[in-house]
């Protein structure tokens, strides 16, 4: 059988597949190969790959959970920030209002003081004006009397000072 199916120098006669003399050899080495592959796979490769896949799945699950948690934290932080912002705004508004009131008070006081000063100044000024006016009137009377005396003297009349003064006073009143 062997010599018939495998001629010299490895040339095939017919189908080498049907050469039964090589079957034990093939089957033996096949079994060896399968056993080796089976042990390498079941002892090393498959547990390792399975562990890697499981680990990855776990990592992904954990990461997603962590991400969810962080997201919640971010939302909480945002809310806290909003709250802080709102309370800060209220506080600021309060401070602004207080400052405004303070300023208003100061302003009012200053205005009142200024008003009083102005009033005092005005009164004083009025008094001075009155004095000046009175002074002016007296001066005018005197000047008018003197002028009248001089005029009368110039015109050749011997004027009685008393008469002239009476006349001038009468004219000034008039």
């Amino acid at each position: 059988m062997a010599t018939e199916a495998t001629g010299e120098a490895g040339k095939a006669v017919g189908m080498p597949q049907l050469d039964l003399s090589t079957w034990p050899n093939q089957i033996f080495w096949l079994m060896v190969t399968l056993v080796v592959i089976y042990f390498v796979l079941s002892r090393i490769a498959l547990p390792r790959i399975g562990a890697v896949l499981a680990e990855r799945k776990g990592t992904i699950t954990n990461d997603i959970a962590a991400a969810e948690e962080l997201k919640l934290k971010a939302v909480a932080a945002e809310k806290a920030y909003g709250d802080a912002l709102a309370s800060a705004r209220t506080e600021a508004a309060k401070i602004v209002a207080a400052a405004k009131a303070d300023i208003q008070k100061d302003l009012d006081a200053a205005t009142a003081r200024a008003d009083a000063e102005i009033a005092a100044k005005v009164a004083e000024s009025e008094k001075t004006i009155v004095e000046i006016r009175e002074g002016a009137v007296a001066a005018i009377t005197e000047v008018a009397r003197d002028t009248a005396n001089e005029l009368v003297a110039a015109l050749g009349g011997a004027a009685d000072a008393k008469t002239v003064a009476a006349a001038v006073t009468a004219r000034l009143k008039g």
Partner: peptide, 16 residues
């Protein structure tokens, strides 16, 4: 069919 021939790796003896 030559490609399918089972040959010994070493020498040219019978295939046990």
């Amino acid at each position: 069919m030559d490609q399918f021939v089972v040959k010994p790796l070493f020498g040219d003896g019978p295939i046990e």
